[in-house]
Amino acid sequence: MNNIILRIAWLSFNEGIRQRTIYGVSAFGLIMAAAAYTFIPFIGFDVCRVVIDFMLMAVSAGCLMIIFFLCLPGLIGDIRDQTVYFVLSCPVSREEYILGRFFGFTMILFIALVILDVPALLMVKLYMMKYPGYVPLHFEWHKLLLASFFRFYAALVFLSFVFLVWSIMESGVLVSIAAIIAYLIGQNINTVKNIAMASKTMGIAAKKLIVFASWIFPNLGYFNLNTYAVYGVKLPEYYMVKLLVYGLSYMSIAIVITMFLFKRRDL
């Protein structure tokens, strides 16, 4: 990776961190931990499972907040407030700008992951000490960490899609709406596809459309490793490797298309 991309990434990272969205996300993590502490004992007996699910969800939601409240406005603002001129008036190619921006956001998301993992792990530990009888049989810490890492990874894949949408659309509002829709579709396309394929009443055209969409949108549902984290349910062979490859190739394709479109665009 070249120096210029790193510098843009660092700029992007610093600018993002100083917007204090990350404080909000940290506060969110703490609030979720407090909520877990107060409410979960009333929800059920299987408390350890609930707390793990709950805190993993907090990690996801936190990463999502970073994307929606920091990355997306950052990208939109680059065009609207013309901050992109600041970078591009230097001898920097548009590709380098896109990559730098993406890596900068990646770093912020990673920080968010670390920050959110702390209350998550503490809470899970606390519940496991308080209710040793309910510790899931096959629970292991590294599985929990892996599951939270893949939540972060899914956020990255989604972020690459946000970049793509942003490079196509001019209006900030439209980009935001499209990102929300894409997130909902991405989360559920996998389930929807399964339901559709099993359905006997659905027409072939509709099924084809769903399959097509599942190729276009990031299949975020695949990155959900809750059952693995909680119950140690065996994943299919090489599942994580496949996930990594899927995510990486998806991001690469999305980013390359983004560069291609961004290169052609008037700013």
């Binding site: 610093n14 600018e15 100083r18 013309q82 001129y85 600041f86």
Partner: peptide, 13 residues
């Protein structure tokens, strides 16, 4: 060296 019409730079830096 370019100076834009309305100042544009990352304002938190």
């Amino acid at each position: 060296g370019y100076m834009s019409e309305k100042p544009c730079a990352y304002v938190n830096m």
